[in-house]
């Protein structure tokens, strides 16, 4: 009965993941391996970026004064738009994780505040390969070299995510593994300021246990995958800490604004 319960939970979380996220690893891999009917438009310099802005991300850069700003600020703005969309997807996903909506509302907020960026960077790896990153719902591909060529501090924004992604992708997780991993990131009992820690720890324990069993059956040849993934949770926390510091620096020194939802998340984070 317990095993059946765990399988049901894994299935519910996987279904919620497929339903709520616009992009997932299997979709991204089809595009990145050249098997999509239309290949993504490659952004690798200023000209191709301008073209992409007119077509792929016209909604993000048009009619808000952003089109006259410098290239780094425009890209940063697009990153923010994508982040906001992903936070809303993650919120809906979290609400579908059994037990989450029964938590104290302030604890739900705390779990999202601290979990969304870790989850986002874990999922971002699915859209990356060593040469670049899928953007605009998989319709574009921006090269790692082009992102690196931007001026500082913007050039430092994505490179740590590529480095994390290359190691993370080597674990060869599929979407069913990632769904449970993302749920484990969000339902984390040691976020600062949680009121009902015991309640969340119980939920976390159940999800982590299901993740361990799922990895055992889905990756029988990699006995150390579970401990490797637990280490990735720590790596993601470090990645987010550094990202938050970089965003604070950009906010202080650059002529750019931060979306109110992202401001809420970053404020008093670490």
């Amino acid at each position: 009965a317990q095993l059946a319960d765990q399988k049901t939970l894994a299935k519910q979380i996987y279904e919620a993941y497929l339903k709520n996220f616009n992009m997932n690893k299997s979709k991204a891999r089809v595009i990145l391996t050249g098997k999509a009917s239309t290949p993504p438009f490659v952004i690798h310099d200023m000209d191709t970026l301008r073209l992409a802005e007119k077509t792929l991300v016209a909604k993000m850069v048009g009619n808000n004064g952003i089109q006259n700003k410098e290239v780094e600020v425009r890209i940063f703005h697009c990153c923010q738009c994508t982040s906001v969309e992903t936070v809303t997807e993650l919120t809906e996903f979290a609400k579908s994780v059994p037990g989450f909506v029964g938590l104290d509302l302030n604890d739900q907020v705390t779990l999202l505040k601290y979990g969304v960026y870790e989850a986002m960077f874990a999922m971002l790896a699915s859209s990356m390969n060593k040469d670049g990153l899928l953007v605009a719902y998989g319709n574009g591909f921006i090269t790692r070299e082009f992102l690196k060529s931007l001026r500082k501090p913007f050039s430092d924004m994505m490179e740590p995510k590529f480095e994390f992604a290359m190691k993370f992708n080597a674990l060869e997780l599929d979407d069913s593994d990632l769904a449970l991993f993302v749920a484990a990131i969000i339902c984390c009992g040691d976020r600062p300021g949680l009121v009902n820690v015991g309640h969340i720890e119980k939920m976390q324990e159940r999800i982590v246990q299901v993740l361990r069993l799922h990895l055992q059956s889905n990756h029988p040849d990699d006995a150390f995958l579970f401990p490797k993934l637990l280490q990735k949770l720590a790596d993601l926390r470090q990645l987010v800490t550094e990202h938050a510091q970089l965003v604070q620096e950009i906010k202080k020194t650059e002529d750019t604004s931060l979306h109110p939802l992202l401001q809420e998340i970053y404020r008093d984070m670490y």
Binding site: K59, L105, V109, L112, E264, I265, D268
Partner: peptide
């Protein structure tokens, strides 16, 4: 609660989109 009003709103009402 005031500090995280958009997150609160997203949690309580899924049909309210966030402006980009």
């Amino acid at each position: 609660k005031e500090k995280h009003k958009i997150l609160h709103r997203l949690l309580q009402n899924s049909s309210s989109p966030v402006d980009l």
